[in-house]
Simulated assay, not measured.
Amino acid sequence: MTAQLNGILAAVVTPFTPEGEVDRAGIAAQVEHILGGGIHGLVPGGSTGEFTTLTLDERKAANRAYVEAAAGRAPVYAGTGALSTTETVELSRDAEAAGADGVMIVPPFYDAPGFEELIAHYGAVSEAIGIPIMYYNIPDATGVELTAEQLGELGRRTGVTCYKDTGGDNVKFNKVLVEQAEHIQALNGWDTLTFQSMALGATAGVWGAASILPRQCADLYEAVGVQGDLARGRELWKTLAPVCEFLESHTYAAAIKAGLRLVGVNPGSMRGPFRDLGEEHLDEFRTLLAAAGAEVTA
């Protein structure tokens, strides 16, 4: 393992125009909002980015637009996971050519591959590109559940340098931090476990709430992850935790897009079959965001 990430990387949305097309200007606005708030990196093209609803060309275009808008100011790890190795390689090569700093790859998620099949899959991508790979661990969606030891082995045998944990198993996460850090870097990707992961010693995380509340999320990382000030971190977490709980209680990307609209950064609507967050939930969300220090404009 060579690459090490530090800080909070925002899991970002894919903005759409009213006509339903990928909105490059909307992507630029997202980037300015997030990086302007002090967040340390971007992860487009993941679950928050509605990647399963995009065509191959749209996925390439959205990843490229995020890289272009970031303009080297922060690392961009582009989501490039697909159902086949061939398509995953194609997306990953395109992201590298666009200037992405790394790629995030979810395992094929229809027929769950076995461990040696995963090694072959990630190994093929490793041979095709020269940038780091983030393994996207989301077993509820993929049916793939690796042990801490297997995650370490994945890091040893392929170009995977880190993994985003959206599995919610804090015991396993700690086991990777303690026993496998030489082989793979553990990044929390479960919003409500953000404080715990940093307190355990994780040096980076991928966090959807950082797209809505970048300054507050960056402040939490500075307090806990950099200064080790748990008392200050607890005070910040008191208002961020309810936001995270809200996000995890709804269709995640829809809730993130709703939050962005509420803070004045329009991401457009969801793409079918998914729907925007219902109006009946917005007053509660406004209250939570305002309590966390957001300037709610909608």
Results as ranks from 00 to 15, higher is better:
247 L>C: 02
227 Q>R: 11
188 N>T: 12
201 G>R: 03
226 V>T: 12
217 C>E: 09
171 V>Q: 13
267 P>V: 04
230 L>R: 14
175 K>G: 00
272 G>I: 10
154 L>F: 04
272 G>E: 15
178 V>C: 02
182 E>M: 06
200 L>R: 12
214 P>H: 05
167 G>E: 12
160 V>A: 03
212 I>W: 06
229 D>H: 12
187 L>T: 05
170 N>V: 15
168 G>A: 09
224 V>A: 06
271 R>S: 11
246 F>D: 13
261 R>L: 02
191 D>M: 06
228 G>E: 12
260 L>E: 14
241 A>E: 15
158 T>Y: 05
168 G>Q: 10
154 L>R: 08
265 V>I: 08
212 I>P: 10
209 A>L: 06
228 G>N: 11
235 E>F: 00
205 G>C: 15
231 A>T: 10
234 R>N: 08
258 A>N: 09
199 A>W: 11
163 Y>I: 00
270 M>P: 01
164 K>Q: 06
183 H>Q: 04
187 L>Y: 11
262 L>E: 15
219 D>P: 09
198 M>Y: 15
279 E>H: 12
220 L>H: 11
250 H>Q: 10
248 E>W: 07
224 V>R: 04
267 P>H: 10
197 S>Q: 07
240 L>W: 12
275 R>L: 10
163 Y>K: 00
224 V>H: 09
164 K>I: 11
154 L>V: 03
282 L>C: 06
204 A>M: 03
252 Y>G: 05
255 A>L: 00
278 G>E: 15
158 T>H: 08
155 G>C: 01
151 L>M: 14
280 E>D: 15
281 H>E: 13
222 E>V: 02
160 V>H: 07
216 Q>D: 14
190 W>Y: 15
247 L>D: 06
233 G>F: 09
276 D>F: 06
151 L>D: 12
231 A>F: 04
165 D>G: 07
257 K>M: 04
193 L>T: 05
232 R>F: 10
214 P>N: 03
219 D>C: 08
269 S>G: 14
254 A>T: 04
240 L>A: 04
220 L>T: 10
184 I>A: 01
147 T>K: 08
237 W>F: 05
252 Y>K: 03
269 S>N: 14
281 H>I: 00
197 S>D: 09
259 G>M: 06
180 Q>E: 02
277 L>A: 01
208 G>Q: 10
280 E>N: 13
198 M>A: 09
228 G>D: 13
176 V>Y: 04
244 C>F: 10
210 A>P: 04
161 T>F: 10
163 Y>P: 00
181 A>H: 13
283 D>S: 10
251 T>V: 07
265 V>D: 09
167 G>P: 07
212 I>L: 01
202 A>P: 01
219 D>G: 11
248 E>K: 02
202 A>V: 05
226 V>E: 13
152 G>P: 00
247 L>N: 01
171 V>W: 14
221 Y>T: 04
217 C>Q: 09
184 I>F: 02
197 S>P: 06
162 C>T: 13
207 W>I: 07
190 W>E: 15
234 R>W: 12
244 C>A: 12
185 Q>A: 02
243 V>M: 02
242 P>Y: 13
167 G>Q: 12
246 F>K: 05
241 A>N: 14
247 L>E: 07
216 Q>G: 08
210 A>C: 02
273 P>H: 04
